[in-house]
Design a protein around this nucleic acid. Structure first.
Lengths: 199, 199
DNA sequence: GTCTATAAACCGATAGAC
DNA sequence: GTCTATCGGTTTATAGAC
């Protein structure tokens, strides 16, 4: 990834240095926010972890909230589960399988502060609403809304337990086993009829 | 103290007055902790909501942490899902039905601060582990541990979305509808293997 | 570009008056 | 039993030196 938008003119050591320290601060901030949440994370701790001064962090990002929003920017729920009704379950399972192995840092930062930081609560709420709406549209059932809400809550609980709570249940389990156990569950929730009647 | 939990003998207006204000403070603290979590809740705000001074709150409960522990004391997950393997699903559904309607204040206070307050994280972790162990013992399957962990995560996600996140999905849904939709899900997770899907 | 010094606000907790 | 006054610590954020 050479230069995405603004290619630094050749030999501009200043801008390059700034870009590096800024990235280092951002990485340190991500770790802290994911680990301790918004309130308990301090600018001082971020600066220390990044090897710089606290004033510099403020000078780059303006405020603690702005830095947090930079970290969580784009950390929404996965795009969309649109598709043919029969394949919705498999699409969700594929997305979840990815979430179980590779940790989406932005999403984890949002998840951690979801319950205690008002702005994050609202952001997550809106993301969940969009996710549910699209998912419900792909479920052919009169109570599709509630089904989509349950699937959303299930995914949230699973990801949260595995990556944040680490209670010893899902964080040590095999992802393939989790997916295999959730397959019939998601089939049940995404299809209308409980009795197996393939006609 | 001769009578710790006993009602004041008779005519002891002082003790009665104290008991009342103490209960008022405790109620205000519960509200604040459930609503805003441990970090954002302040002793001053609790005192103001209770109509007393901040110093009095400290004088009664000693510290903010002690007050929080008083609020969350006994706010664990429901006791135990022991029983015959065929009835485990129904027992869980019955417990969950109760959690959906009547709000367990102590549990909600724990849930709110579960991700951001270290002591609460640990307490919830231990409670979850006990719950999972007992549940897994009642599931006749080689991967009972993972099944129990998924059920635990599902319950957590559902209760959290309904009472805390209030994203508009499960908080507005009918409890009976939620239970009905989760019945086949829990049957699937608590029984080893229904006959493979009809092809 | 980076750091030092400091301002301004808020917190939990303590001591003591009434 | 309840409240006033205050201490000591931590926080974000700002202003300016190097």
């Amino acid at each position: 990834m050479p230069h995405p938008a603004e290619p630094p003119p050749r030999g501009d050591a200043r801008a390059e240095q700034r870009r590096r320290t800024e990235a280092r601060i951002l990485a340190a901030a991500s770790d802290q926010f994911v680990e301790a949440g918004y309130e308990r994370t301090t600018i001082r701790a971020i600066a220390q972890a990044a090897g710089v001064d606290a004033g510099l962090v403020m000078h780059y990002f303006g405020s603690k909230l702005a830095l947090f929003e930079q970290v969580t920017k784009g950390g929404q729920l996965p795009p969309a589960p649109t598709g043919p009704p029969g394949q919705v379950a498999e699409q969700i399972l594929a997305q979840l399988a990815g979430s179980l192995t590779t940790e989406p840092v932005r999403s984890l930062a949002m998840l951690r502060s979801m319950l205690t930081h008002p702005e994050t609560t609202q952001a997550f709420r809106e993301g969940t609403q969009r996710f549910r709406a699209q998912l419900a549209a792909a479920i052919p059932a009169p109570d599709a809304d509630t089904r989509a809400a349950l699937i959303s809550a299930l995914i949230m609980g699973v990801v949260m337990d595995r990556h944040l709570l680490k209670s010893g249940g899902l964080d040590t389990a095999d992802p393939d086993q989790i997916i295999a156990l959730l397959r019939p569950v998601l089939r049940t929730l995404t299809t209308a009829d409980p009795p197996p009647d393939p006609a």
